[in-house]
Design a protein around this nucleic acid. Sequence first.
DNA 1: AAAAACGTCAACCAAATGGTTGAATGTCCG
DNA 2: CGGACATTCAACCATTTGGTTGACGTTTTT
Lengths: 112, 112
Amino acid sequence: MTPTLDQVFSALADPTRRTILAMLLEDDMAVTDVAEPFDVSLAAISKHLGVLTAAGLISQEKRGRVKWCKLEPDALREASVWMQGFGQMDAIDLDAFENFLSKELGPSTQAP
Amino acid sequence: MTPTLDQVFSALADPTRRTILAMLLEDDMAVTDVAEPFDVSLAAISKHLGVLTAAGLISQEKRGRVKWCKLEPDALREASVWMQGFGQMDAIDLDAFENFLSKELGPSTQAP
DNA sequence: AAAAACGTCAACCAAATGGTTGAATGTCCG
DNA sequence: CGGACATTCAACCATTTGGTTGACGTTTTT
């Protein structure tokens, strides 16, 4: 089931979860190691990881007794595109945008 | 007080609020007019607008008995930058962008 | 085999969220 | 002035959220 914008944005709304994502930017991590720097229980972190997984922002793979957490940055794309619709054009690839425009406004599709 | 990433992302996590933002993309609107298409009470919409204002995503200016709501897209920048840190966002998904244009702005919108 | 490590589950709790209704406030108009 | 309109406030309710603790099932280590 593809995650919704609701899931992605509300997953990002929690500072603990954003920190976890930033940690995973460095490297894949086991659940216990993700939990280590935080001042909450392992179970709480396990729940956060469940939310991030449901939102598609990370994936989890169990190898032996260790469950590895891996960042899935592609899940941010849909949300990023939504935001860019509000004028954050400096954030997008202008070449790709021009390419899009020339395709849309090309000779055969030009509005009368 | 500058809004936090928490406030921005959790404001964006609600579909009603995202729809309101998309409506304000077209034009400034009065609270009553914002509420009109939704199937909830005016008070509920008023609360949503309060959340959006606290997040800095809109501003509200009272002129006479009418309170005008105006999109403040700059508030998205901080959140957008945070997401950019996760990479692979530079090549915008053109299909998704087109989808945004047609879905959020509506088919009646015409290019100038 | 027993112990330790890894992680989740279940039950519970407090606080936040999104919704309702009805009264209250302010403003325009006849 | 008095009424209609625009918006918020206050009190309330159900659900969700983020947290806890302790028990539990697996896998590794000794």
